[in-house]
C-alpha cells in the first residue's frame, strides 16, 4: 500500500530524517514511535507533501508520488490527521467534515460519522474553534474517515486526550481495522500502540533504528519507555 525508501529531510542545514524506510501493507496498522524531535511529524509531513526539503521514494499503491502536489496526494487516498488536529476555526463542524473531497469507496457517509461520534452531531453547527481538544481530535479523525482515504496518517491522536477518550479511540480504530483500515500511526503511548497496531518502527534522531512486533515491545517495555522519555 505505502512504501517509503531512502527518505531524507532537512530544515535548512539541519537534517531531520536520514534514509528512512518502512512499509505499510493493506489492512495493516503500524506505528512510528520515537522520542520528542525524532522526526515523526516530519515523516508524515513529507508523506502528505507539506515538507518539501526532502528526497527519497514514496510509493502509494504502486505509484511514485513524491513529485505530486499535496492536493493530488490527498485525492489519491492519503487521509491526514495532523499533530495540531488541523481544525478550522472559521468553519463549522459540518464544514470541517465536508471540506475534503470524498476520494474512495470506503468514504463514511455523514450519518455514520454522526452516529459513531454523537458529540459531533450535537455540535455540528458550532465553529471548530469552540470545540474542546478532545472533540477536535475526534473531528480530525472523523474527517479523514469521511474522505474514504486508503491510508490514514495519524500524528499522535491520543495526545492530550482524557483516558476515556483514548479508550474510545482505541475501540474505534480496532473496529475500523476489522473493516480493513490501513493506517500509519505516530504514537508515544506504547500501551495504545501495542493495543491497536501490528508493527512498530522505532525512530531515533531521524533514523529507523529498529522494527518491533507487539511481543518485543511487551518484553522490552521498560527500556523503551526510558528511551522515549515518558
Amino acid at each position: 500500500m505505502l512504501e517509503v525508501a531512502g527518505l531524507s529531510a532537512w530544515y535548512g542545514q539541519a537534517q531531520a530524517l536520514k534514509k528512512v524506510a518502512f512499509r505499510v501493507d493493506d489492512g495493516e496498522l503500524i506505528t512510528l514511535v520515537g522520542r520528542n524531535g525524532a522526526g515523526k511529524t516530519t515523516t508524515l509531513r513529507c508523506l502528505v507533501g507539506l515538507h518539501r526539503e526532502m528526497e527519497g521514494r514514496i510509493v502509494l499503491g504502486g505509484e511514485e508520488i513524491s513529485g505530486w502536489s499535496p492536493e493530488r496526494r490527498a485525492r489519491a487516498g492519503l487521509g491526514f490527521v495532523p499533530d495540531d488536529r488541523g481544525i478550522y476555526a472559521t468553519l463549522t463542524v459540518d464544514e470541517n467534515l465536508t471540506l475534503p473531497p470524498q476520494v474512495g469507496p470506503t468514504a463514511w457517509p455523514l450519518d455514520r460519522i454522526y452516529a459513531t461520534f454523537p458529540v459531533l452531531r450535537e455540535r455540528r453547527r458550532a465553529s471548530g474553534a469552540k470545540l474542546s481538544g478532545g472533540e477536535q481530535q475526534i473531528l480530525s479523525i472523523a474527517r479523514a474517515l469521511r474522505m474514504g482515504a486508503r491510508i490514514l496518517l495519524l500524528d499522535e491522536p491520543t495526545e492530550g486526550l482524557a483516558p476515556v477518550l483514548v479508550q474510545q479511540l482505541r475501540e474505534m480504530l480496532l473496529d475500523a481495522k476489522r473493516e480493513g483500515l490501513t493506517a500509519l500511526l505516530v504514537e508515544q503511548n506504547l500501551r495504545f500502540a501495542t493495543a491497536v497496531a501490528d508493527r512498530h518502527y522505532l525512530l531515533a534522531q531521524g533514523e529507523i533504528v529498529e522494527t518491533l512486533d507487539n511481543a518485543a515491545v511487551a518484553v522490552r517495555e521498560r527500556e523503551l519507555l526510558r528511551h522515549l522519555g515518558v
Partner: peptide, 9 residues
C-alpha cells in the same frame, strides 16, 4: 497549506 493536504487545489 493544510487545505491543499486535504485535497483542495
Amino acid at each position: 497549506d493544510l487545505t491543499r493536504a486535504f485535497g483542495i487545489s
